[in-house]
Amino acid sequence: MKHTLSVLVENKPGVLARVAGLFSRRGFNIDSLAVGITENPDVSRMTITVDAEEHPIEQVTKQLHKLINVIKITDLDAEKTVARELALLKVKSDAKTRAEVMQLAKIFRAQILDVSRKTITIEITGTFEKIDALEQLLQPHGVVEIVRTGRIAIERGEK
């Protein structure tokens, strides 16, 4: 099962290495990891997605807690969170297919960032699934390169 861990850490050197090292040491593959500062400059947030069962995820969370620089960990409940990811896709496209590719992008509310003779570069924001869907539709044209940020997520406000 996919888990999204939202980890608040002190903004100190070596924290990323410690967190990432802990996952690999305990036998976890990180699907994605995004780090950025928060509203408090002394604190950073890591959003980590991992694929794991309940018991091991509880173990890794407890181990993470033992890192001195880790302040708080939340295993985000998918129902109560909004998650987004940003991706940049460079797709093969010439004069003949340009319109079709741009049309697809439009349906997905993606932005066109760059157009060249042979390619189009698209920016898309959305859920993991939405990005996958667009990628698949573009696949027949030939996706030259794809760059994804990894998931970031935030809990919804109280109802």
């Binding site: 090292g21 040491r25 033992k66």
Partner: peptide, 10 residues
């Protein structure tokens, strides 16, 4: 020593 310390400082 990262995996074998409780914490470390540089």
């Amino acid at each position: 020593t990262e995996p074998i310390v409780k914490h470390s400082y540089l």
